Structure formats: C-alpha cells, structure tokens
Simulated assay, not measured.
Amino acid sequence: MARTLPWRMIAAAGVLGLLLAAAPRLAGDDANVWLAVTALRTSAVAFALGAAFLLDDPARHTTAAVPTRRAVRHGLRLALLAPVAAGYWTGALLLVPGPLRPPAGAVTVEAAAVLALALTGSAFALHRGDGVRPGQAVAGFLLASAVLAPLLTPGSWALFVAPGDPRWAAGHDRWALLLCAVLAAGAVCATEPVRRYRLRGTGLRSPSGTSDPSRA
C-alpha cells in the first residue's frame, strides 16, 4: 500500500509549501501579520494540491474485486498520510516567526478544511466515476478555488481576515462548520456506490440490462 502512494507528488508539494511558509522569515523587517497568515494559507493549499493525488489508483478496477471495502482502502491511505501532514504543518507553523504567527488552532482549522476538501474531492470523483486518477482534476479545481474564493466570498463571512480583526473568531466558526461538512461528505463518498436497478415490466433490471431471476 505505502509503495503505491504518490510520495513524490506529496513531497514536491510539501517542499513548495514550506518555502511559502518561510516567506515572512525571509522578508525580515518587512514582514507583518498579514503576510504571515497569507503565507500559511498558501502553504496549506500547496500541501493539499499534492494530497489531492492520494487516492489515485491505476489498479482501481483490479482492487475493486478485492473483498476489502473501499472505506478501508481509503482509510489505510489516509492513515499513512496523517503523520506526514501533521509533521508538515508543524514545520510550517514553526517557520513563521513567533511574534507574527497567527493563533495555531484557528489557522490549523483552515488548513484541515483545505486538506479535507482536496481528499473529499478525490473520493467524490472515484465514487461517481470510473476514472483511476482523479488527482489532477481535483488539484486544478482546488487551485482555482483558492484563487477565486478570496475574491468571490462575501466579506461578511470573514473567512480570510487577519488576526486582530474583530471578525476573526466568527470567521473560524465558519471554517469549523465547513470542515465538519466536508468530512461528512467525504465519509459518504468513501462508501461503495449503491447498485441501481430500474423497474421494467414486472421484473427488476440492472444497468447492464439483465433481469433478476424469475420466481416460480
């Protein structure tokens, strides 16, 4: 399992993310709180872009016949990623100078929501389609969302304010709600698709067109 994960993609995204997180330290005296929180937000997006490839599985149609359920297969991949993500985010936080570092708990909720969005997007693509590599499309969607969200999100939601803003706490209550919603959606997408049947005449037919066994 560990060998099949896209470690190179995740590592490349991690290196880029740590460089972004180090921007306030590299800026020296020109750094400020806004630069620090923006650096951490972009760092979270960078790592999530790599994590979007976590569920890519070229052998998907082979492993689909294995008795192990999809939720278990996805869970094993997530379990391997979790310590890497935790170590990465700890490093990103420590790269930001202490006086400029935003509240760790609040900004970690943001990072967790972004990561969950990437993973849930991949799980949704696998749940609804037959593709084996959803990572590229999900990463593209996530990148576009990261660019457009600060421009299109209503200011009253306060999702992208800086520490010290009176709306900081309310904004992170919304981030927490978003995280919970995305995690719930991800749990649903990790289940096996329900086989659909349609009623035709007096018998049930599967999507392949075969009818169920007749009853005496």
Rank of each mutant, 00 (worst) to 15 (best):
M1E: 07
R3W: 14
L5M: 15
P6K: 10
P6D: 02
W7V: 07
W7Y: 06
W7M: 09
R8H: 09
I10M: 09
A12H: 06
A12C: 11
G17V: 02
A21M: 11
A21N: 05
A22P: 04
A23V: 14
D29Q: 14
D30H: 13
N32E: 09
V33K: 10
L35T: 04
A36C: 06
A39S: 15
L40T: 09
L40Y: 08
T42I: 08
T42Y: 13
T42D: 10
S43Y: 08
A44P: 00
A44N: 04
V45A: 07
A46I: 00
A46F: 01
F47N: 00
F47P: 00
F47Y: 05
A48D: 06
A51K: 00
A52R: 03
D57N: 10
A59I: 04
R60Q: 05
H61L: 11
H61C: 10
T62C: 09
V66H: 15
R70T: 13
A71P: 03
A71T: 09
V72W: 07
V72G: 07
G75H: 06
R77W: 05
L81G: 10
A82I: 05
P83N: 02
V84L: 12
A85R: 04
T90P: 00
A92W: 02
A92C: 08
L94W: 13
V96S: 03
V96H: 04
P97V: 02
G98F: 11
P99Y: 02
P102G: 12
P102R: 06
P103G: 01
A104G: 12
A104Q: 11
A106F: 14
V109W: 05
E110F: 10
A112W: 12
A112G: 11
V114K: 01
L115R: 01
A116C: 07
L117H: 06
A118D: 08
L119M: 03
L119D: 01
A125F: 04
A125I: 01
A125E: 07
R128D: 10
G129D: 13
G129I: 02
D130L: 09
D130K: 08
G131D: 12
G131E: 08
V132G: 01
P134T: 01
P134C: 05
Q136L: 15
G140N: 06
G140M: 03
F141N: 02
L142D: 00
S145P: 00
A146S: 07
V147M: 01
P150S: 08
T153H: 06
S156G: 06
L159S: 04
F160A: 04
D165S: 14
D165F: 12
D165G: 09
A170S: 14
A170Q: 11
D173Q: 15
A176L: 15
L177M: 08
L178E: 12
L179N: 09
L183A: 10
A184N: 02
A184R: 01
A184Y: 00
A185N: 07
A185L: 15
A187R: 15
C189H: 13
V194I: 10
R195M: 11
Y197L: 13
R198F: 15
L199R: 15
R200K: 13
T202L: 14
R205E: 14
S206Q: 12
P207S: 13
S208E: 15
G209Y: 07
D212Q: 12
A216Y: 06
